[in-house]
């Protein structure tokens, strides 16, 4: 009863958000677009990093690679097919590099993920320089209203995926890997395989997000598409919200996108400083994020009441 109510409520919110595409101003649609983009990215990050504890500081690598595949395909295939192919190519790429990469554990994985993103960025830069392309314009992209809907779809799919995984057998395996990979294998969790699937899933959606983002920005530049700030923002959003469940990023993203909207254009440094301070504060004082902090304090007050 409670569950079906919640489902109806969620569906209603999604329908309302979707119908805004025909009503809201360009400016509002732009904010919505950014909001959905980061929701999709942060949820995808949770699938790998929140669930398995393999913290990725280089998630922009999927975003940027997706965007790159997409601009290479631009004009050759229909737009939305191009988006799908970008996701698929990056997902398969993740499967291919995932095995050696995921053997590197703990803090080394964190640094590796960052290094990998920078490596790919530099390779793309070199490749673009070879082809005499410092930037690639994307002409004739669909209107913002369509991109808005597409991004909404990705955000919903990513959120649903995270929500489902969190409550599934697959998620139970991933979370046991996070707590103690060795002990997880002892009780039969096929750690390598589960990590690899999580890695690929975690890259698939950001790649499509990257493809759609390029249509909005109208131009592909390796430095922008692989900007480490994107990775950093994703991590901060997830950690601020609480990174073990689908509800966490929703909180974190909403907060940071508003902040970004207010500060990014005129005061990017202040925005980054606030981001950094928030990350430091949450790691030190509320490692479970807003969500974890709430549930901890709620259960404490319940206990006190009892």
């Amino acid at each position: 009863m409670n569950n079906s109510l919640r489902l109806i409520g969620t569906a209603a919110v999604i329908v309302i958000l979707a119908s805004l595409s025909g009503l809201a101003s360009e400016y509002m649609l732009g904010i919505g677009f950014t909001l959905f983009m980061y929701i999709a990215l942060a949820q995808s990050w949770i699938i790998l990093s929140g669930m398995t504890g393999y913290i990725s500081l280089g998630h922009v690598v999927f975003f940027g690679s997706g965007a790159y595949v997409f601009v290479l395909l631009w004009g050759l295939v229909p737009v939305w097919l191009g988006v799908a192919i970008s996701g698929l190519v990056v997902g398969i790429g993740a499967l291919m590099i995932g095995y050696p990469v995921l053997r590197v554990r703990g803090p080394y994985f964190v640094i590796l993920s960052f290094g990998l993103a920078e490596l790919v960025k530099n390779l793309v830069l070199i490749n673009e320089a070879r082809m005499y392309m410092s930037l690639r314009p994307v002409f004739g992209a669909p209107p913002l209203a369509q991109l808005y809907i597409a991004m909404l779809v990705l955000a919903v799919v990513a959120t649903a995926l995270t929500y489902w995984i969190r409550r599934s057998r697959f998620g139970a395996g991933l979370r046991s890997i996070r707590e103690d990979e060795w002990a997880a294998e002892t009780i039969g969790v096929p750690a390598s395989r589960l990590k690899l699937i999580a890695f690929a899933l975690s890259g698939l959606i950001p790649a499509m997000v990257g493809a759609i983002f390029i249509m909005r920005s109208g131009i592909f530049q390796p430095g922008d598409a692989f900007n480490p700030i994107v990775s950093f923002t994703i991590v901060t959003m997830a950690i601020i919200g609480g990174s073990d469940d689908a509800a966490g990023p929703l909180l974190g993203v909403a907060f940071l996108v508003i902040l970004q909207e207010l500060l990014w254009a005129n005061w990017p440094e202040i925005y980054m400083i606030i981001l950094g301070v928030l990350l430091i504060g949450f790691v030190l004082f509320a490692p479970g994020g807003i969500l974890g902090w709430c549930s901890k304090n709620l259960s404490r007050s319940k206990k006190n009441a009892a």
């Binding site: 913290i55 500081l57 950690i239 950094g276 301070v277 990350l279």
Partner: peptide, 16 residues
């Protein structure tokens, strides 16, 4: 992991 995230935050703050 925690110190890494912490220093990452510090790095961003200092640079900016």
């Amino acid at each position: 992991e925690n110190s890494l995230l912490l220093f990452f935050g510090i790095s961003v703050v200092v640079q900016n």
